[in-house]
Amino acid sequence: MTTKKPSELRPDRKGWFKPYIAGTWQLYLMMLIPIVYIICFKYKPMIGIVMAFKKYTPFGGRSMWEMDWVGFQWFEEAFRDTLFWKSLANTLILNLGDLFFGFPFPIILAIFLNELRSNKVRKTTQLALYLPNFLSWVIISGITSQIFASSGLMNNIINALGGETVPFLSNTAWWRFVYWFMGIWQSAGYSLIIYLAALMSNDPSLSEAAYIDGATRMQRIWHVTVPQIMPTISTLLIMQVGKVVSISFDRPFMMRNALVTDAAQVISTFVYDKGLKGGRFDYAAAVGLFQSVVGIVLILIANQGSKKMGQEGII
């Protein structure tokens, strides 16, 4: 059996199939396990979405299909549930805060870090800022209480300066601030590296030309440097806007405490509390489905938006 070069394979001729399979069956065989994995763990769970329209009965050994249909009952319940609306609102507030405080920060750092000539300082800054990215949210939440608790570093400093102890972790407004702050601490280094790479690929001759033409530093940054990294900025911004209703589980789950539930209960933790902890799989599945659908719609809108703005789409 001779194997043939791809160029010799003619799709329109009769008898292409046999030599093609002879030449590629091994490649298909390789993909077998990963494909089975994707079917079993990425596609098959989607069947479980019907749980959102069923009445879940935990005992009695009934399969998902034998449970009773309830139509949109759980969705209606969710829309009447103030806790659901609160979770949704908190999800939006926390995500928008991340966007507002966390998004510009690494851009500004990257622009001025790029101005710096000392390679040592640049490398050190990257090293220090990127480190928290490798810590889990369990560790970060532990660190958070060491910094912001009533006996933490911040209050130590405030007390030493003669100020009153600030309830960073028990006051909802302060807690949000801490949530955003630790988010920046954890993720700024990652974005910083993306922006620095974008700045590296900038054409230095443009900046030089502006310099020779007498542009000030700020003018060069604003009119020459920033426009060149605008595509990167808008792509990342659109990606983050598209994800505004979805929120990770680890971060809010680990950062929350009993005193700030009002601000810290978000969709992902709500689904966990109601479903996996409370046993209401049907209701939690409906809430999760609502979030997924809204999330996909937003991503598609964001993608259209990015194409309209002349950027490459993100999908």
């Binding site: 763990f41 769970p45 989607m46 689904v271 996996l276 999760g288």
Partner: peptide, 28 residues
């Protein structure tokens, strides 16, 4: 030279956008 390559690629990429959610994943 893989004829089904494009289709399998789409099959993979779709999973990045279609997330079944916590509960269905747990049940699975």
């Amino acid at each position: 030279n893989l004829r089904l390559g494009g289709a399998i690629m789409t099959f993979c990429v779709l999973t990045m956008y279609l997330n079944p959610g916590t509960i269905p994943t747990f049940l699975n």
